[in-house]
Each structure stands twice: as C-alpha cells, then as structure tokens.
Amino acid sequence: MSPTPAAPVPAAPVPADRPLRWGVLATGKIAGSFARDLALLDDHEVVAAGSRDVERARAFVAEHGSADARGYGSYEELAADPEVDVVYVASPHGRHLEDATLCLDAGKAVLCEKALTLDAASGRRLVEHARERGLFLAEAMWMRTNPVIREVQRLVGDGALGELGEVRAELGFVADPDVARLWEPELGASALLDIGIYPLTFAHLLLGQPHTVAAAGALHERGFDVAGGATLVHDGCGDRGVEPVSSLAWTQLAQSDNTASVAGTEGRIEIGRRFHHPTSFTLVRGDDAETIDVPVIGRGYAHEAVEVAACLRAGRTESDLLPLDATVQLQELMDTILEQVGVRTRA
C-alpha cells in the first residue's frame, strides 16, 4: 500500500520587495482581460500560463508575460511551477472544482473565476480543502473589489439613504452562439452562474442573505437556464417594521439596460449600465442629484489582484473583500433559484 503523500506546507508571506508572480490557468478571453489589467500594476507579473494547447499558452505569455514567462501544455505543469505564487483559474466554471483543487494540492494560492463551483456542496468542499491546507483561496468576483461598489456600500452603511427598502439590479446580453461555455451543459452553461451572480451579489452586499426567494426563468431545450428573475426578502426591519426587498433579473438572450439601484427612506443611489464594473454612480436626495466619479484602474480586474496581493503579503489565507463564507452563501442561494427555475441536474 502506497503511503499517503504529505500535504504541501503553506507558502510563507510573499515578500514586499518583489512582484507577485501569477500563473494563469486557461487562456481564453477573461484571462486576457485580467492580464491586461495586471500590466497596469507595478508589482504584479504573469510568469506562467497553462493551456491544453501549448502553442496557445506560449502565445499568451508572449503577449502578457514577463521576459522569461513559461507557457505549458497542461494545467499540471503550471501548478507545479515553483516560481508561481498564485494561480488565476480562468477555465469554465464546470471545471473550477477540479482545476482549483489541482492548484491547491500543488501548494498554490488560488484566485478562481466566478462562479466558484457549480453548486454549494462542491463550493463548500473546495473552501474546506483550502482551509485544511492553510492556503489562500478566493472567488474572483471583481465587482466586490470595485471602488465604486465599495463607496456605495460605505454610504449605505453610513445611513446616507436612511432605512433601506429596495434593491434592484439586472444584467443581460445576447450570448455569442460560438462561445461554448455559455451553451454546453458539460461546461456548466447557466445564465445565472455566468451573469445572474452579479445582481445576486449586489443585493447580498447591501442587504445580506435573504430568508425568502421566489424565482422563475426560461430553460434551453438542453435543460440549462438562459434567463431568469427573482424577488428576495431580506432581514432588517427598521422602525417601520417592514423588511427590504430586492428585485433581480438576468438573461443571455437580450440586451437589457444593465443598471442597478438601492433606495431608502432618505434617497437612492443609481448605477448606470453595466453596473457590475462601474466608474460612477448618482446619489439622489429629493430633487437633488449628484453624480460621483470614483477612480478605477483599467476595467476593474486590477482591484481584485491588489486585494489578493495584500492578503498574500500579509500571510492571510482569506480576504475580507472576497469572503469565502459569503461566496458559499451565494452558491446556496443560486442552488435554490435553479431548483425553482427547473434546473435539476448540472455537469
């Protein structure tokens, strides 16, 4: 009987006197967007990339990597690279559990694209695995680290809108029929997991976990969801004894207006189109409306990288801005919604 391999020793804090060295697992569109934002930061660099096609990996590091960056033809080789501090997992979410586990087993810190996994059970399993090994893990929900969203949170927390009563958010686009991850069940195709997660996260950030969920949606003939909406009731009765409600929608079939708002007794905040990576918002009180601009680096991916670096340099294995417990709560909520919509099985 073979001996059980020893668990990797958690990495020491990343020194502050050198760049954070990133490995990129999967080299599709989202990986390129992330790498372009990394290039705007002085203390980050892509030192390796892994793809099932070694030429794609080499082309990726030629465009985005450091001078001596390596391109690998397998994810296993990437995870084993001793120069990589943290792996950005950019594969379709149907592969996230397998790919993130591979990296954790190799002793690597992991920033994994959303949705973290296909369901709450596998999400909890991945979180427990990272905690058992003492390794950093976070879901790459870049909206949570966006400076605009954080300022909205601050204002709401400071009572700028009075007692909250309503959150509204919706996100939609027409999905390219050639993008396999959006249409192939074995890759985890789901409008909720791909884009509905943003309205849900926005409501969760401001109102917390709901106690009541009423959802409906449309299914593709192959059984996955392509559009949906939900009304959520949250805890938090104020002086009026009425709980706040969020109204959310998502679709990969139509160009919706992609806006969000949060309203209270003293005013409201409106966030314009593509609310999940905004650069400004409008604060409305009575007849007065003030548009507030907040500096954002690049498209906004850089801010999650900055947060990961701060954690790794401080030796922290979890992020306050990308909290794992909240990630699992959102997965539990998405499980409930998918069941109500009629999605019974997933890849």
Rank of each mutant, 00 (worst) to 15 (best):
L248A: 09
G162V: 04
L207I: 05
G286Y: 09
L171M: 13
F281H: 06
E318V: 08
D257L: 13
L25W: 00
G94W: 08
A7N: 03
D99Y: 00
I292C: 05
H220E: 08
R313I: 11
D239V: 13
D293N: 12
F173H: 13
D81C: 02
L338I: 00
Q255I: 05
T282C: 09
R18D: 11
V86D: 02
L322T: 07
G50K: 04
L312Y: 05
G162C: 05
S33M: 14
D257W: 11
E332F: 03
G267F: 09
G300N: 08
V174W: 12
G71M: 05
G65V: 04
P15T: 11
R168L: 03
T282M: 04
P82R: 06
I297W: 07
A180E: 11
E163L: 08
A314M: 05
E128K: 04
T101F: 03
D225H: 01
A49D: 02
V46D: 08
A67E: 08
L312E: 02
R18M: 14
E332N: 07
E221L: 00
K114F: 07
L182C: 03
G217Y: 12
L333F: 05
E339F: 07
L104V: 02
P323S: 02
D68E: 13
G298F: 12
E45Y: 09
R154L: 01
G238N: 04
S246F: 09
D320L: 10
H93I: 02
V46E: 07
D257M: 10
K114L: 05
W142S: 06
L118P: 01
L182E: 06
P323I: 01
L182R: 11
P185Q: 06
L193C: 15
D288S: 14
P10M: 10
T336M: 00
E98L: 05
A120W: 04
V179S: 00
G23W: 11
G134W: 01
R299L: 13
L20P: 13
L78C: 01
G123A: 11
Q331A: 15
H93R: 03
S33H: 14
A49L: 06
V306I: 15
E170T: 03
V296F: 06
L78Y: 01
V308G: 02
G208V: 11
L118N: 01
A59M: 03
P8E: 06
D257K: 13
G50H: 01
W183Y: 07
C237A: 14
T251D: 14
T282Y: 04
H276N: 15
A289H: 05
H64G: 03
R18E: 15
G342Q: 14
S122K: 07
L41Q: 13
R273L: 10
G272W: 12
